[in-house]
């Protein structure tokens, strides 16, 4: 069975532990790394080649800074940004631009997004990275 590789790098610590508690015992999901600091994300993605990266979503709900740099270099990676305080999370992916979709911040919501990885892969064909105009 092909597993879904996930790199977990969200904050704060409790939310990171809760994500790990949710996904680590799923047979089709493999946690390829856990990071406490965002600074190491690019290097870890290059090394571990995850399908998904999980980061924190700030209360402002602005797109996390790591999205642009990461998706430019690794457009095949999907990013799930989880809010610690609110009951919402945002899912980012790249085709010709960065897209996002709001999901419910729940165990079911996270697992649905991670397992929907293949459904999105059809969107990736014949696409290349084009930076967004400022």
């Amino acid at each position: 069975m092909q597993t879904i590789k996930v790199l977990v790098a969200n904050r704060p610590r409790l939310m990171r532990e809760l994500v790990l508690a949710t996904i680590s015992d799923q047979p089709d999901i493999e946690v390829v790394g856990v990071l406490e600091e965002e600074a190491a994300i690019l290097e870890s993605v290059e090394r571990a080649k995850p399908d998904f990266l999980i980061v924190a979503l700030d209360p402002s709900e602005e797109r996390p800074h790591i999205c642009d740099a990461l998706l430019e270099r690794f457009p095949q990676v999907r990013i799930l940004a989880l809010a610690a305080e609110r009951n919402s999370s945002i899912f980012y992916w790249a085709t010709l631009d960065i897209h996002s979709n709001r999901i419910e911040n729940s165990e079911e919501g996270i697992l649905t997004v991670l397992r929907g990885r293949k459904a999105l892969s059809s969107l990736e064909q014949d696409t290349k990275w084009v930076p967004r105009p400022n």
């Binding site: 409790l14 939310m15 532990e17 809760l18 994500v19 508690a21 949710t22 989880l82 809010a83 610690a84 305080e85 609110r86 009951n87 999370s89 419910e104 911040n105 729940s106 165990e107 919501g109 996270i110």
Partner: peptide, 12 residues
């Protein structure tokens, strides 16, 4: 408010 927190923390 956060459903993930409720669900996962309850399980732990």
């Amino acid at each position: 408010e956060n459903r993930l927190l409720r669900e996962a923390l309850a399980r732990i």
